[in-house]
């Protein structure tokens, strides 16, 4: 079995509210999350907005300093903020954000954008620096003449490919992808996902893939984790996840997805109908945080927060139903 390269234990990230009506309270964006990623695999971290999936990713890359918990990468502790991390760690973890329109500086050319990680990590090829950049462009299937263009003259998909090239420049072994295709059309998404799959194979990359799209994860992820209000509700290998979803929230998510074929319709759990909305992470309900929407709720759910339990190989569920 492949080596574990990223391990997150008891990760918590609270944001204090500094002003306004709710001053003094905290936003519990991530509230005790455990997961790990093995070399060369894709972990899909799925959840609704407000579930804390992006915050988790930002903690992993060190954009936020974490409140509590431990993050280790290849056995090395990286729980600190990115400004305190050694360069070698920054080099080994790549990041691609959601909206390529905002992650590429409009005032800098493609060449400047791609050169930055190379010069920071001192891996510029002195003999032919340009050739090195052209290779990067080729790797993400962008034409060479883009080297002197600005992001504004690129299409949305092409910008995202450029952002991926920038993340690849330092040859990382883990890529954190925060909804990289959710702002793009499906025809472009297909291209980018195929490219990511190819790169993963070629470079044995591990992906932490943040998304809200379960259909996409079905075709991409090795394992899937569902987040709800800062906690992981269920984590399972992709096959198991779709054939035997256990957590009521997973079932609710699956039953809500609009699909195209009858095969897919058959996969949707019929018993669970979507109702209610995700509560604010400022006022997390006591007990199990899903108790406001769960169709199978019992008295115990209001009193005690369930613990993660293993119900199959690599399949963990956090619900009293499986106690």
């Amino acid at each position: 079995m492949a080596r574990t390269i990223l391990e997150v234990k008891g990760l918590k990230k609270y944001f204090p509210i500094a002003a306004g009506e709710q001053k003094g309270k905290v936003v519990r964006a991530v509230d005790g999350v455990d997961f790990f990623i093995r070399e060369g695999e894709t972990l899909g971290l799925v959840g609704e907005s407000g579930s804390g999936k992006s915050t988790t990713a930002y903690c992993v890359i060190g954009m936020y300093s974490i409140t509590d918990g431990e993050i280790s990468f290849k056995g090395q502790d990286i729980s600190m903020h990115s400004s305190k991390r050694p360069l070698s760690i920054k080099k080994d973890i790549g990041m691609v954000f959601q909206d390529p329109g905002t992650t590429l500086n409009p005032q800098r050319s493609v060449k400047q954008i791609l050169s930055l990680p190379l010069s920071v990590h001192k891996i510029v090829d002195k003999r032919d620096p340009e050739e090195q950049l052209l290779k990067l462009l080729e790797e993400v299937e962008l034409p060479a003449e883009y080297l002197y263009s600005y992001p504004a003259s690129l299409g949305g998909g092409e910008r995202q490919m450029l952002a991926i090239a920038r993340a690849l420049a330092t040859d990382p072994s883990l890529m954190v992808l925060d909804e990289p295709t959710s702002a793009l059309d499906v025809s472009v998404q297909a291209k980018i996902i195929n490219m990511l799959l190819r790169l993963q194979k070629e470079r044995n990359l591990a992906y932490l893939f943040i998304t809200h799209d379960l259909s996409l994860m079905r075709n991409l992820a090795t394992r899937i984790a569902i987040m709800y209000l800062g906690k992981i509700a269920e984590i399972a290998p992709t096959e198991t996840f779709f054939s035997a979803p256990r957590h009521p929230y997973t079932q609710m998510l699956l039953s809500s997805i609009p699909v195209m074929t009858e095969d897919e319709d058959a996969l949707k759990p019929k018993r669970v109908v979507s109702r209610g909305e995700i509560p604010s992470p400022v006022d997390v309900p006591p007990g199990c945080s899903f108790n406001t929407r769960c169709p199978f709720v019992t008295d115990g759910c209001f009193e005690e927060d369930p613990a993660m339990r293993e119900v199959g190989t690599d399949h963990w569920v956090r619900c009293h139903l499986f106690a």
Partner: peptide, 28 residues
């Protein structure tokens, strides 16, 4: 707080680079 500044920070770029190469051109 723009993502491109964040991403330069995460790459490990120096403060001078961020100020004069990433932010300044957008103030021009």
């Amino acid at each position: 707080n723009e993502m491109y500044v964040k991403s330069a920070e995460l790459t490990g770029a120096s403060t001078a680079h961020i100020l004069f190469r990433e932010i300044l051109p957008n103030c021009f």
